[in-house]
Each structure stands twice: as C-alpha cells, then as structure tokens.
Amino acid sequence: MALRTFLRTLGSNAPSVDTVTGTGRILPGAPLDLTVHLRGGGADLDVERLRLELVVRAEDREADGSTAWNNPYVVTAVTEGPFRLPAGAHLTREVRVDVPWTMPFTHARGERLRGSRVAVRTELAVDGAVDRGDFDEIEVHALPAQDMLFGIYEDLGFRFHESEVKVFSQPWPERYRSRRSTDYWQELDFHFPDSWDYKGWELETVLITFADELDLHPGGNPPVTLSYADMDREKWAQAVERHVRRHWNR
C-alpha cells in the first residue's frame, strides 16, 4: 500500500516531511549538513525509518534521455529510526552526510556539466510502506585539482562534451582496477582537438579521487597519478599531455 494512501486512513491531517540543506553547493569529501522537519498529523505515528540519500543520475540506469533520471543511483545514505511522531508534534532532526571523495560533481570551473545531476532524497517508511516524496537537487562543485585538470584539457585543445556516471554490479573492468573503492565512477567525455587527428572521436576520461591525490585514466587506459601536494599547473600539464599522447598517438 502506498504511504500516502496509508496516511489518509489515519485522518485528514497527514504528517509532512521537509528536508533543508545547509547549502545547495558542496564539494567531494566535505560533509553535507541537513535539517529534517517532521510534522505530526492527526494521529500518533510509528516511523520505522527516516533515510537521507545522496543520489546521482547514472547513465546506464536510464532508458533514454540525456538528462533523465527516473532511476537514480544511491552514492551514500544515512538512516535514523525507528521513532514515534506524535500527533501534531514538530520534530527536528539534524543529520550529517559524509560526502565521499569519489562523489560525482555537477559543476567544474563554475559551470554546470551536461548530464551530471545530484540530489538529496528523503525516504520515510511507515508500516512497511515507503514514501520518497522529498527530492532536492544540489550542486557538487569540482575540487581545485579537478578544476585544474579541466583547464589543462582546455589548454591542450580538448572540448568538454558531457559527464556520465557508470555503475557496475560486477567487478570493475580491468582498466579501472588500479585503486578502485566503489562500484561507480564518473566519466568525462571530451572532444579531441582537430590537430590530434582523431576527428569525431571523444576521449573518455575517468578521475578516481582520493583525499590527497587522484588517478586520471584517459580513454580507459592505466592512470597517471597526480598529488595535491604538488599542484604545479605546468608540471601537471606536462604529465597529462605526455600520458595521454603515450596512449593516443598515431
């Protein structure tokens, strides 16, 4: 039975849930603070579960559409409960979600990435029924190191096309197994420069991000690892160009 149908059997005044984000803009690796307001309805209610999910649009979970996300993928979640919501009461829950370093980002260099979407989804479970009514889209901005790589690609003549999140229920493909820690990854698609003789091709780049460094996989090839402790743009640019040309040279 749907939750709203169940709640209507309790009386005309159904309970409500509203989730408020401390900010609509976060970074990978930084905590996300949420405030959940619950208002009781016309009868006491035993809540089995209050769950806050950080979800992303995953390319291979959508039937079609470049930005559709009818079946988002849950990156991380926090669950509270069970607890009682008295009739007419107002309960406030402060919840902190630890955003992983591998969190797909929606913005780079201040601009939205085509195809990348992230939201906070609130789930309330009562008497075996689940309601996922509260769905708040947020922005995840690239880390300084990720922004720098976008600039380096641009300097090399690459043009960004779109972002896709890939999800594998099976083990990761061999090409990404260097230091994987999740069953998802963000793929950034760039058009090759005309001077590289790959007209019409795209370089599918995967960034596997950690607290102190990141792995850049160009086109599914082994990674070049770049440390945040030495974020020298010229050095990074030389390392990236050398690595990409090593695998894409003809």
Rank of each mutant, 00 (worst) to 15 (best):
M1N: 01
T5G: 09
T9H: 04
L10P: 01
L10C: 02
S12D: 06
S12T: 10
T19A: 10
V20D: 00
T21W: 00
G22R: 07
T23L: 03
I26L: 13
P28F: 10
A30Q: 14
P31V: 14
L32R: 07
L32C: 14
L32P: 00
D33E: 12
D33W: 11
L34A: 08
T35W: 11
G40P: 05
G41D: 01
G42N: 05
G42I: 00
V47E: 06
R49T: 08
L52P: 02
L52W: 03
E53Q: 13
E53P: 01
L54W: 03
A58T: 02
E59W: 15
E59A: 08
D60V: 00
A63R: 14
A63T: 07
D64W: 06
G65P: 01
T67Q: 13
N70R: 15
N71A: 01
P72M: 00
V74N: 05
A77P: 04
A87V: 11
A87Y: 09
A89Y: 02
H90W: 15
L91S: 05
E94T: 13
E94S: 15
R96K: 13
V99M: 15
P100Y: 14
W101P: 13
T102Y: 12
P104L: 07
T106Y: 11
R109C: 15
E111F: 06
E111D: 07
R114W: 10
R114D: 13
V118C: 05
V118S: 05
V120D: 11
R121D: 12
L124D: 06
A125K: 09
A129H: 11
V130Q: 04
R132N: 03
D134E: 09
D134Y: 09
D136M: 01
I138T: 03
V140L: 04
V140F: 11
V140A: 02
H141Y: 01
H141W: 04
P144W: 10
P144K: 09
D147P: 06
M148G: 10
M148Y: 09
I152L: 11
Y153K: 11
E154G: 05
L156C: 04
L156E: 09
F158K: 00
F158G: 06
E162Q: 15
S163W: 04
V165Q: 10
V167C: 05
V167T: 07
F168R: 14
S169D: 11
S169K: 06
Q170Y: 12
Y176V: 07
R177Q: 13
R177Y: 13
S178Q: 15
R179S: 10
R179T: 03
R180T: 04
R180Y: 09
L188E: 01
D189N: 12
F190W: 12
H191R: 12
P193M: 01
Y198S: 00
Y198P: 01
K199I: 02
E202M: 13
L203M: 04
L203G: 06
E204Q: 10
T205I: 10
I208H: 07
I208R: 07
T209Q: 12
A211I: 08
E213W: 12
D215S: 08
G220H: 00
G220T: 05
G220S: 13
N221L: 00
P222R: 06
P222Q: 02
P222N: 00
P223C: 05
V224R: 03
L226A: 03
S227Y: 05
Y228H: 08
D230L: 09
M231G: 00
M231V: 02
R233K: 14
R233Q: 03
Q238A: 03
Q238H: 11
A239K: 03
V240I: 02
R245S: 03
H247D: 10
H247L: 15
W248Q: 06
